[in-house]
């Protein structure tokens, strides 16, 4: 670091007035203790939440829970089988919609837009979309799809599209970041062999950024699959096995919402079971994706 910058930092730091050594040490000890305590508080709450979900959820889980569909309160054979199927289907369709578009947008940001003004605008809008409350995405889809279809109806398609909108900026930004990490020499040598840009991107850049991009997509899928708010006004929920995606569609998160708010103990019990499924699914996927990235194959990855 050059001396000029160093002196700037020292000026920023301001004068350090002499103070009793004892007081300073004591203060330092106090802050350190607080710091450790804060970390402990964070971990404590994490453990509390996870333990509650595991403990309460495990009691609800048995074979019928997976194989039967939602049932009225008091019924012996209620399960969340149809909700699992619905969540998986909507997440799958959302992924199919969001990944290609997100990847293309990421390619443009990293390969063509780079530091242009338009790229800056696109990045900013990506961040805005990422920060948009998911319930507003649901509202948007309600206004453009649910009430525009004839006759107006909730549908699994609408839910999947809402989830896809949530995924889109996540995929675009991670793709951009991962492609940017690919060394320029690779692009140059490929183009020196007269490879067109599109082939360079699709066959070489994607391959070398594969681990990072896949991790990013998996993390985005995990995050989206635990969302409730965007499904409230789009897919709603249903007690039946899905026959088509063109009608109200059962899903785990809305089931948790409706069952947890109900006054029936057996429904609440099942809500805990479904909550355990969602939490376990999301956490295992998230941890798995991070682990893949950590264990070597994540060449050119950030974390």
């Amino acid at each position: 670091m050059d001396p000029k910058a160093l002196s700037w930092h020292i000026e920023q730091a301001g004068p350090m007035r002499p103070r009793g050594r004892r007081g300073r040490r004591l203060l330092n000890r106090g802050v350190c203790a607080f710091s450790i305590a804060s970390a402990a508080v964070g971990l404590l709450f994490l453990a509390w939440i996870l333990w509650t979900v595991m403990h309460r959820g495990a009691a609800a889980i048995n074979w019928t829970f997976f194989t039967h569909r939602l049932a009225p309160p008091g019924a012996e054979d209620g399960g969340v089988g149809n909700a699992i199927v619905g969540t998986l289907l909507m997440t799958l369709l959302a992924t199919l919609l969001a990944v290609p578009i997100g990847l293309l947008a990421g390619v443009w940001l990293s390969e063509f837009g780079r530091d242009s003004r338009l790229a800056g605008i696109v990045r900013m809008f990506c961040n805005v979309l990422m920060g948009t409350p998911s319930i507003l995405i649901g509202l948007f889809i309600y206004t453009v799809i649910v009430i525009q279809t004839r006759p107006p109806h909730f549908s699994g398609y609408a839910g999947a599209i809402a989830l896809a909108i949530l995924m889109l900026p996540l995929v675009a930004r991670t793709a951009e970041e991962m492609l940017r990490l690919v060394p320029n020499e690779l692009r140059e040598s490929a183009m020196a062999l007269a490879m067109p840009r599109w082939r360079v991107t699709l066959t070489i850049l994607f391959r070398s950024a594969k681990a990072g991009i896949i991790t990013g997509i998996v993390l985005a899928v995990a995050r989206v699959s635990g969302e409730t708010a965007p499904l409230m006004f789009t897919a709603l929920n249903s007690n039946y096995w899905p026959d088509t995606m063109n009608e109200q569609m059962s899903n785990l998160t809305m089931t948790v919402y409706q069952y947890a708010k109900s006054p029936y103990p057996d429904w609440q019990q099942q809500a805990w079971g479904a909550a355990l499924l969602i939490t376990a699914g999301v956490l295992v996927t998230t941890l798995g994706a991070r682990l893949i990235l950590l264990t070597g194959r994540g060449r050119g990855a950030r974390r």
């Binding site: 578009i101 293309l104 837009g113 338009l118 790229a119 509202l139 900026p169 675009a172 067109p196 599109w198």
Partner: peptide, 30 residues
């Protein structure tokens, strides 16, 4: 080919901007 590829990518990127604007416009309209 590259021009088309570039245009398609750009369309996707600009699409995100348009999407945000569409959300805003739709909420205002409703």
């Amino acid at each position: 080919g590259d021009r088309v590829f570039r245009a398609v990518c750009r369309l996707a990127a600009v699409g995100i901007v348009l999407l945000v604007l569409a959300i805003l416009a739709e909420l205002v309209a409703n």
